[in-house]
Amino acid sequence: MIAATEAISLLQTQLWVGFVVLLRVGATVALLPGFGEQSVPARIKLVLVVAFTLIIAPAVPQEPPAFTIENLMLLSMTETLSGGIIGLGVRLFILALQTAGAIAAQSTSLSQIMGGAAIEPLPAMGHVLTIGAVALAVMAGLHVKAAQLLIHSYVFLPMGLFLSPNDVADWGLSQIAYAFELAFLLATPFVIMSVLYNLALGVINKAMPQLMVAFVGAPLITLGGLFLLFLAAPIMLSVWLSALDQFMASPLEVRR
């Protein structure tokens, strides 16, 4: 009887630890690229959350407080918010890539081609870059990096504690600014090509007013945009993956 009582007590403790870890993992996985996409069925997401929890729970460096109603309510809020902060920080890199694709598509007059190919309405360039980035991140071990990030998160986001609102605001603003900076950096070749194209079009129109340069140049900018995407996509995805790895190594760093 004593052994059975100890076993039941140990099981209850492990279930409580698993539940607390599940709160943070669930909020993170819901926003994680590849795993938290709208196209992934809810049952698959639930299986992924449970799988991550089974991996992370034994490695958590701290024990949760004892099970009480007050601790349950507190941990439900703090752990969900902590997981949401981590997941949102990673998700911003996908939004940066989508923004870069939208800038590139607008610059090359390809913004309306296959705009509804994805669940979220994106230009074709943004859709291609997003799919390629998610595939590249998963092939590069996104699941392993995410598990390491969640385990390490208990060091800088302790269990049961709220972050300072000022710190969260500063971090959020810096991450959003960095996402737009990264988006413009990735789309720079297309912006430069667009400027050169419109400049050349203006010079030709000034020299030959009778020529309908817009109709002549439209196929050229389309072909040039597709060819530039073919050349620049590997470099863009490499830069994006490097930025994502830097974030996952130090997620709460305030970027200036």
Rank of each mutant, 00 (worst) to 15 (best):
G26C: 10
A27F: 00
A27P: 03
T28D: 06
T28K: 02
V29E: 02
V29C: 00
V29A: 04
A30C: 13
A30T: 14
A30S: 15
L31T: 10
L31E: 05
L31D: 10
L32C: 12
L32K: 11
P33W: 06
P33V: 10
P33Q: 02
P33I: 07
F35D: 02
F35Q: 07
F35N: 01
G36I: 06
G36Y: 09
G36D: 10
G36S: 08
E37N: 08
Q38D: 13
Q38F: 06
V40T: 04
V40G: 05
P41L: 05
R43F: 12
I44Q: 14
I44L: 09
I44E: 11
I44W: 03
K45Q: 15
L46R: 12
L46S: 13
L46Y: 14
L46M: 15
V47T: 12
V47D: 13
L48V: 12
V49K: 15
V50K: 11
V50A: 15
V50P: 03
V50Y: 12
V50D: 03
A51C: 07
F52H: 07
T53N: 04
L54A: 14
I55D: 14
I55L: 15
I56G: 01
A59H: 07
V60T: 12
V60Y: 00
P61F: 06
P61H: 02
P61E: 03
Q62H: 03
Q62G: 04
E63N: 07
E63C: 02
P65C: 00
P65Y: 00
A66Q: 10
A66S: 11
F67W: 14
T68F: 07
T68C: 09
I69T: 14
I69L: 15
E70K: 09
E70F: 12
N71L: 07
N71E: 08
L72Q: 06
M73H: 12
L74Y: 05
L74P: 04
L75F: 07
L75W: 08
L75M: 14
L75E: 08
S76Y: 02
S76M: 12
T78C: 00
E79V: 07
E79C: 03
E79I: 06
T80F: 08
T80H: 02
S82L: 01
S82R: 04
